[in-house]
Simulated assay, not measured.
Amino acid sequence: MLKLIERLGPIEASQATDTLTLPYELRIRGRLKAMSDAGRELGLFLDRGPVLRDGEGLRAESGEIVRIRAAVEPVVTARVAAGLPLARLAYHLGNRHVQLALGEDERGGYVRFPPDHVLEELAELLGAILERHEAPFDPEPGAYNQPGHAHAHAHAHAHAHHHDTEHSHEHEHSHLHGHGHSHAH
């Protein structure tokens, strides 16, 4: 078994000795046994967290490089007019905390997601035309999954105080919490 132990980020196809085609649900795993596209037994021994992206290279203990490919799988592609309608569609679907692929082709911009009747109904309510088909699903990594990302969260808390002296007052205050994240590659 070829043990894949290191993420290399995006690579050219010519750099790899083999490819591994996986659906999205398996590209989210750090530990996995699979067969390469050439029929070789592979084992993934990677850090958990980052999704394996289409075109990403993985280095084996032996030094060989395998390139990840996103499998063709059932998806829904929602299309709506560019500009505010497309932004509104992406916002409302993204607000459901589901994985979304955003893209553009000769027919314009689109939002793609796994089949889900609730999301499909929402997209249609927002004026989208839906295409149910099979295509690679490679969702956006998200702002918080970028290398070397650091962010702060602001939290507002309102407190009401009531006293026996028949008066009350309210006040608000904010807290900034810094969270630094470093991702080894």
Rank of each mutant, 00 (worst) to 15 (best):
L119D: 03
T21N: 03
L22H: 09
H179F: 09
V66H: 03
G103Y: 07
R132K: 09
H183I: 11
Q146T: 15
I11W: 01
H167E: 11
G148Q: 09
V98C: 09
A152H: 04
R132I: 02
T19S: 14
E121F: 01
E124L: 00
G94D: 02
A101T: 11
R112E: 10
A60D: 07
H173N: 06
G49Q: 08
Y24K: 08
H171M: 10
R59T: 02
A70K: 12
R48G: 10
E41T: 06
R53V: 02
D164L: 12
V76N: 04
D18A: 05
T19L: 07
D164G: 15
I5Y: 07
E12P: 01
E104P: 00
H157R: 10
G9F: 10
G108M: 13
R79T: 02
R7N: 03
E106G: 02
A101K: 14
Q99M: 06
E106W: 05
H161D: 05
R40W: 07
E124Y: 00
T17H: 08
D47H: 13
H92S: 11
P136N: 06
M35I: 12
E172S: 10
F45H: 13
R59L: 06
P74K: 10
L4H: 07
L32P: 09
Y110D: 06
S182E: 13
K33Y: 14
N145T: 05
E104M: 13
D164W: 04
S182C: 05
S182R: 10
P139H: 12
A70W: 02
F45T: 08
L122R: 00
E170M: 09
L119T: 02
H185M: 12
T21E: 06
D47M: 07
A13W: 04
L2N: 06
G39P: 04
G127K: 08
E124N: 00
G178Q: 09
L26A: 08
R88S: 09
A38S: 15
S174E: 14
F113G: 03
E166W: 01
L8P: 08
E166C: 02
H181L: 14
